[in-house]
Write a protein that binds this DNA or RNA. Structure first.
Lengths: 321, 321
DNA sequence: CAAATTTATGCAAACGTTTGCCGCCACCTT
DNA sequence: AAGGTGGCGGCAAACGTTTGCATAAATTTG
């Protein structure tokens, strides 16, 4: 219950002014070495810990050592990995991370953007809710450094780090084709998401490269949630001429599709339909890591040109399930 | 780049003193309704957002509207779910959550405890690194509300919410026994973790209840990581008289065990060894939710008696893999 | 050796709130 | 008519820092 010691306590004990203490801590200004030693000793004896809140209030520009991370849902492994990447580089630079889940809910996103600004975070990392997100643009206009991840913002040239979804899908479908499949079902992402569109493009390009015609009945769009993967898989497998392989556009829909396959598995001869499970590993941790690095650089130098990173996903080829 | 408006700006525009504005916002003190209306109008017009940092600096006691959450690793689904539970109730009460991953590293834990105190969080939720965690006790002594989750702290009667690991393991092993298994391999948690010990006790009690003798060679301890699950599963399956079922003490070790089984699956006749995959679902989200609720209550009333919740895990019975 | 410069430290304002205290006004009560 | 009461709102201090400016001492310079 004893309240923590402040600069004043340290100053009193070291018989100096508080500004001297502040300057020894921050290594700013000229302070004699013997004075510094005395101050340090006092700090040690009192167990002094600087108050980040006061510091944050005082210094408008950077140095608040706090980052904001706004993501749809931490329960999604992609964002958990991403968050971990952010947190790791933040920790290395003595930054803490304020985590916000916004559930693709614009009201929640706005609330958190307000909170983060109100907390004077040094910068914010987030996947914009859609390509022209006015709330985010407002924040950028306020001068808060922002790095976009996963998705991007059409206007405003911001730092961003994305995954090359087109190439990822392309390689995956190429691989499926190479394994001899000719009828590949697509469980796509929402048509209005950039990630969904890019993956669709990869699917189509792979077909084009192989000289394979697209079969419209094999192409369906879900909403990135498990249930839709299951539904669509059922639909596809119920076709008169079902696909011999499926390409699902994210992890949750893949899980749903596997449920569907398992449910039908009993009724089907295993070799009639034995889908090879190959996954496109999103470099989520790396996305977070690079985003945080970019953000820290921008915090240090607000004038540097915006850089845009595109990370390549990895194709992981597994045996059939 | 325009700096945000402050109480002063609002006060000027509404032609009142800043204290009047503050009091209208916080609904404290007596302010006439027409004055309030004028103030609100000014706030709206200026797009005023209160500065949480200044507020936090000023008010030592509670009302900083910030919670700290320190967990081993957000990539662990258990903690991701827990974090989500915390965040959801925090959001409902207009709190934000500062997330810290400490990786079971004491230095990191100390760093983050310092940061959280330095940020004047209203309270902290964490699984203590071990049962007598001096750093955490120090924080408690400083008067910061703390709620323990998952594991508990031996001394200091704190609010805590845990999972009933003993019953969970007991029910799971009972279920396995009921399915006719007599040789059940245990892939246990670390012997020095309370969760590991409790689950071991459940395993043993289930055997005792069924009048089954324990076979020491079937009981092995891992470290809750995937690799150890795989290694131990291989060991167990290599025994002259292998177990007919396995009970792994957490999700990652289960995954490792499944890898091992899959790797051997080709060489084994499927009906010789066909482990039923039944899982004990930890109510992680609920743990986080209740912990946050407890914490908010304690923030409101520091004198309330410490309450201790024990949540029951759910046995989810699946078909064999 | 006086003047100019550098070095080391103190002083006090500012960041944006909250809040105890005081005063004003209007309305009752004797 | 004098005093009391209560509603309303202003004044200013405080929270713990950082930092521009002033100043004293020490050092270099001409």
């Amino acid at each position: 219950m004893n309240k923590p010691s402040s600069l004043i306590d340290v100053a009193r004990r070291a018989k100096v002014n508080i500004s001297t203490v502040s300057r020894t801590i921050n290594q700013t200004g000229k302070i004699g070495s013997e004075t510094q030693a005395r101050v340090r000793k006092a700090m040690r004896e009192l167990g002094y810990k600087p108050n980040r809140v006061a510091r944050r209030l005082r210094t408008r520009d950077s140095s608040s050592h706090l980052l904001g991370l706004i993501i749809p849902n931490i329960q999604n492994i992609f964002f958990a990995d991403l968050a971990r990447g952010v947190e790791d580089v933040a920790y290395k630079s003595n930054y803490a991370v304020l985590l916000c889940n916004y559930d693709e809910d614009e009201a929640k996103e706005r609330f958190y953007l307000d909170v983060l600004q109100s907390e004077s975070v040094d910068g914010i990392i987030l996947p914009p809710i859609h390509e022209t997100d006015p709330a985010v643009l407002q924040v950028v206009r306020n001068g808060t450094p922002v790095v976009c991840v996963d998705r991007s913002l059409s206007s405003g040239n911001l730092d961003k780090v994305e995954v090359d979804n087109h190439t990822g899908a392309l390689k995956a479908v190429e691989h499926i084709i190479a394994r001899g499949h000719r009828r590949i079902g697509l469980i796509g992402g929402p048509a209005d998401s950039s990630t969904g569109r890019e993956r669709l493009r990869g699917y189509k390009d792979a077909h084009a490269q192989a000289g394979l015609a697209l079969k419209p009945e094999l192409i369906r769009f879900g909403d990135y949630k498990q249930a839709s993967g299951e539904t669509i898989a059922h639909e596809l497998l119920s076709l008169a001429e079902p696909p011999t392989a499926l390409f699902a556009c994210n992890g949750l829909m893949t899980a749903g599709a596997l449920e569907a396959i398992a449910a039908r598995g009993l009724k089907m001869l295993p070799d009639v339909f034995n889908p090879p499970l190959t996954v496109v590993r999103q470099p989520a941790y790396e996305v977070g890591k690079y985003a945080a690095e970019l953000l820290l650089k921008r915090i240090e130098d607000g004038k540097r040109p915006a850089t845009s990173l595109k990370l390549m996903p990895e194709l992981i080829i597994r045996k059939s399930c």
